[in-house]
Design a protein around this nucleic acid. Structure first.
Lengths: 150, 150
DNA sequence: CATAATTATGCATTTATTTGCATATTATAT
DNA sequence: ATATAATATGCAAATAAATGCATAATTATG
């Protein structure tokens, strides 16, 4: 496991274990684990990992977003998706086994307006369009999400 | 999308679209798409992506393994897993939403002998041990899989 | 079994990514 | 509205990863 991956794993652990309200606080916890980075690097880690500010009864704290809005998710989806196809009525995304639900989750969060609903099976995501006229547009937009610069 | 990711995406597409029986053949298809790499790089891509030789009625061909045995999967699992916990009887892995099945799939393929079965929900993987005596061992082994050098 | 073809890998070089620095931008407190 | 604190980001330097070269290792073929 590389230094960065180890660091990010530790960040995830610390953020779940403690009520951390600032970058500075987390940098102190990391320093205790012999991980020395600057606030700038931590800021980028948060963005990559999808760590967000949330409000609890104790005040504000950082949390790993349940809906993984982190920037690195696109690379993961790219790895998981095998292909995108469609017929006259539906769009189908084929994925690696067991990974369709994660991909469906990602598609849901793109909020593509032409999509009526998604169904994730084991290795297939079914995308139901609001109108079959939008199928090409849906395929185009999904393709855009998957290829946008990282 | 970076050069490498784009290349790997194209590799996936070509391998599914054509009956490709050697690295050299695929390098020719890639060259047609203005992607020039050496056989050594392609070999590493195959390993990272989990592309394997399979036998079809037409002979041998390369395929994307449905069970993603590629080396890069460990980084993905690491990103998806939020934590591993256990009580006296079961091991539980918490994941990002929608990603438990993919993680369960990975756990299945580790073939850890002490595991009786796994159940992947939406964001939780339940691991049933063959004996509760093996719980610590299971947690240890899973941790090892997730931290081995990449 | 020998040879040819194909694939995998150690090492050095090249390329890409990560990181820190400094500061811009945004959020919070007064 | 202003000051302070906290976070995000452009750029250059540092570091890590990727890649090619050459060849070792493995597999396929005769």
């Amino acid at each position: 496991m590389t230094t960065k991956l180890r660091r990010q794993s530790k960040i995830k652990e610390l953020v779940q274990k403690h009520q951390i309200a600032s970058h500075e606080e987390l940098l102190e916890y990391l320093a205790k684990e012999d991980i020395e980075i600057t606030q700038a690097t931590l800021s980028r880690d948060f963005a990559a990992m999808g760590i967000i500010k949330t409000i609890t009864e104790k005040g504000m704290k950082y949390s790993v977003s349940a809906d993984e809005t982190g920037r690195d998710i696109v690379k993961i989806i790219g790895f998981e998706v095998l292909g995108i196809e469609h017929n006259e009525s539906v769009v189908m995304i084929r994925t690696l086994a067991g990974r369709a639900q994660g991909v469906a989750h990602f598609i849901d969060r793109t909020h593509i307006p032409e999509i009526m609903g998604t169904l994730g099976g084991d290795d297939t995501v079914l995308i139901i369009p609001k109108s079959v006229k939008d199928i090409k547009k849906i395929v185009q937009q999904i393709g855009n999400y998957l290829t946008e610069d990282t």
